[in-house]
């Protein structure tokens, strides 16, 4: 299995001034938004990155795109480490990996028509002449389900779902290998949400895309992704193949996420449980030392094939 995108030990710290020491002296307080996160997106697979807001999952996406500089860690795209490249060296690699954002409205420049927006990648990468750019943009709009009639519209004339399709068209213009989808459906109505998910699914199969799908809704992710990484407070707490998570979640935080999915049958309604931070630490699984096999993240223990969980080692025991 070839790896399309690999994030190795990504961390991001933000520093906040705190003037506790007096009027003029202030000290920098470190806040680790992302702490040693490693994610591997195999070719032609979709990996879901799940967590509550503030868990650092979007920061991971921005760092993977080099839109935010990681404090430490490497980003390996198709075998090339792009984390240290200069903007100029990075530019050709940009074509290999693209991103779509949550807010479809602010993703599109309100002063540009749709075809200009979709043709922008060609302009930036100096590809094709003006006419070809326009035609290619129209083709792309067609592929994402917007007819050629949309080419001369402005973003404010579209619905949220339509705008998100434009974002997808722009991201796919350069035929990237990897797509980072940063909560592309969170702001959409339920029916539109399904359409966009289906579109992404189809495009993934047709174009052989590898997708890192960032979301806070496990239910949305289930139908789409092959593997799930759960983040909490900047750290990976559990990662496994999709059904393993749904059948056999180990970490209390993952369990509470699963618990928050609404059930269809009202007879099965139950009281949701929300675990506090203290309970999370206290209920962290304790597993035998031998199960901690990952070199890049020694906090994760292997529970079954492909299934890792954040646990504390149980001294002396073996399995």
């Amino acid at each position: 299995m070839n790896v399309a995108l690999e994030l190795r030990g990504l961390s991001k710290s933000f520093y906040k001034k705190q003037s506790s020491a007096g009027f003029f002296r202030s000290e920098l307080v470190e806040h680790r938004a992302v702490d040693n996160v490693s994610i591997c997106v195999p070719e032609r697979k979709i990996v879901g990155l799940v967590g509550e807001s503030g868990s650092g999952k979007s920061t991971v996406g921005l760092m993977a795109m080099r839109l935010l500089e990681p404090t430490s860690g490497d980003i390996v795209l198709n075998g090339t480490d792009i984390s240290k490249l200069s903007p100029k060296e990075l530019k050709p690699h940009r074509a290999q990996m693209q991103i779509i954002f949550q807010d479809s409205y602010s993703s599109l420049n309100p002063m540009m028509t749709l075809w200009e927006i979709v043709a922008e990648p060609f302009v930036i990468h100096k590809m094709h002449d003006a006419n070809t750019r326009r035609n290619k943009a129209k083709e792309l709009l067609d592929i994402v389900g917007l007819g050629a009639a949309f080419a001369n519209r402005y973003p404010h004339e579209l619905s949220g779902g339509q705008r998100q399709r434009v974002s997808i068209a722009r991201a796919l213009a350069l035929k990237p290998k990897v797509l980072i989808a940063d909560e592309p459906t969170s702001a959409l109505d339920v029916s539109v949400k399904a359409q966009v998910i289906n579109l992404l699914h189809d495009l993934q199969e047709e174009m052989g895309l590898s997708i890192l799908f960032i979301s806070h809704e496990l239910s949305v992710v289930r139908s789409l992704v092959d593997e799930i990484v759960v983040m909490h407070r900047g750290r990976v707490v559990e990662q496994a193949q999709t059904e393993q998570i749904f059948q056999n979640a180990q970490h209390p935080y993952t369990k509470s996420l699963l618990d928050s999915i609404p059930v269809l049958n009202p007879h099965n309604r139950r009281r949701r449980t929300f675990v506090s931070a203290n309970e999370l630490t206290a209920n962290k699984p304790r597993l035998p030392k031998a199960q901690f096999v990952l070199a890049n993240n020694p906090n994760l223990a292997q529970v079954e094939d492909h299934h890792f969980v954040d646990a504390s080692p149980l001294e002396g025991a073996t399995s």
């Binding site: 839109l67 420049n109 922008e120 974002s167």
Partner: peptide, 27 residues
């Protein structure tokens, strides 16, 4: 705004972004 980020993600230079996105929106 995310369209600025999208242009950065596409590899647009600072000058490109200022001329193409920032100035037209500041008209």
């Amino acid at each position: 705004k995310e369209f600025i980020r999208a242009a950065q993600a596409l590899g647009g230079s600072t000058w490109y972004i200022i001329l193409r996105h920032i100035i037209p929106n500041s008209i």
